[in-house]
Design a protein around this nucleic acid. Structure first.
Lengths: 199, 199
DNA sequence: CCGTCTGTGTCACCGAGTGTCAAACATTGC
DNA sequence: GCAATGTTTGACACTCGGTGACACAGACGG
């Protein structure tokens, strides 16, 4: 075959379908019985496959949950890249994070459940924070690149951290009432607060 | 016995000694073979006790390492409490974190090894971040209490987060060369940078 | 000398993950 | 239609972190 990857004929499609199904079932069970209260056996069995197969689609139990927010992080990073280079860093970050809002409010109940799940489980939360750290570094690197600063510039890193912190403080409050509040407004308020910060 | 806890005669002393020994051995082995590359069996055996006994002294493998920084966090919180209430929040935080510096520079090589260990292991790092989050909340609550603000004040939470972030960005750089740099100066520089942050 | 209390080791167990292997399956070439 | 081929899957065995149960030892007071 010359095009080893070109035809996602049936194979790739089925793979995606199984993965989707597995993720769906997992999220439902985890939200219902809690992260620690759900075993992989239960998830696999409920999805109609073996435990071993679960691990062929997801690296770990945490992965099923964190993957969603992971993709969202990549999306935010992409949006940041598309922003004008002369925009002040914090404004660019705010805009990038705002771009992710519709994705969450799109299916608000599910997103809220996911966030609540993460914030309720220490193990999950810890992994999530670690992921946020990577995102923070990537955002800071992008900000640095667009204005010719060194990639590990401390000031930009602090700015990126502050922006993500704003998000992390707002999200759980939004998730607490199943995403009925105006997430976009909450974010803007918090960013305004941040901008008025004076030592 | 009327004084059930009063005489830490032999029992408590031995307990502390065993715990100390266990922690010492663990830190050495973990620093040598990495966090994932060291099993609890190895630690327990090297310390001359059974695996079960290890867990009677430490809740988990992560606990052996994180305990130290945990205590340090409590110390920082205590220092913050002793600061004048009218001091600007960020200055108070800087002073509190500076107070922890001598503790680390006291035995710099060991502290640096510990920090490198944490930052090298994803699992450990994730747990560490979670701990920092608790500390952040506690610091923010203290700042709020001293100036009569609500305990979950967003602005103060952001300030506490920024201060801890400064520390977390400086520490690995300091640890990279075995703690030979001037940690106190590095911290002050970073805090100065933070203070000059304008959106 | 006898109960009791505490620390310890042994054993059995669970759940997350991983490597291996053989069977099942679909795909392709003839 | 059939054989060769490659991929997906399930079954099994194993490691490691962590927990509960129980039995045994020694220190202590009566």
């Amino acid at each position: 075959m010359i095009w080893k990857t070109e035809p996602p004929n049936m194979a790739e499609r089925k793979r995606r379908a199984v993965r989707e199904e597995l993720g769906e079932v997992a999220l439902r069970l985890l939200a219902e019985h809690g992260f620690e209260g759900t075993t992989i056996d239960q998830i696999a069995h409920a999805a109609g496959c073996s435990r071993r197969t679960f691990f062929r689609y997801y690296k770990s139990k945490e992965d099923v949950i964190l993957e969603v927010l992971n993709d969202l992080g990549d999306f935010v990073l992409d949006v940041l890249r598309s922003r004008p280079a002369d925009e002040p860093p914090l404004d660019a970050l705010r805009a990038a994070l705002q771009a992710a809002v519709p994705v969450m409010t799109g299916n608000a109940r599910k997103s809220a459940a996911l966030i609540r799940l993460i914030f309720a489980s220490p193990a999950l939360r810890a992994r999530y924070l670690h992921r946020q750290l990577d995102l923070e570094a990537a955002l800071a690197a992008e900000l640095a690149a667009r204005q010719g600063a060194p990639a590990d510039d401390l000031a930009l890193r602090l700015t990126a951290a502050a922006a993500l912190k704003v998000q992390d403080l707002v999200l759980p409050r939004w998730a607490e009432d199943d995403g009925r509040a105006d997430l976009s407004a909450l974010l803007d308020d918090a960013f305004a607060l941040l901008k008025n910060q004076r030592a």
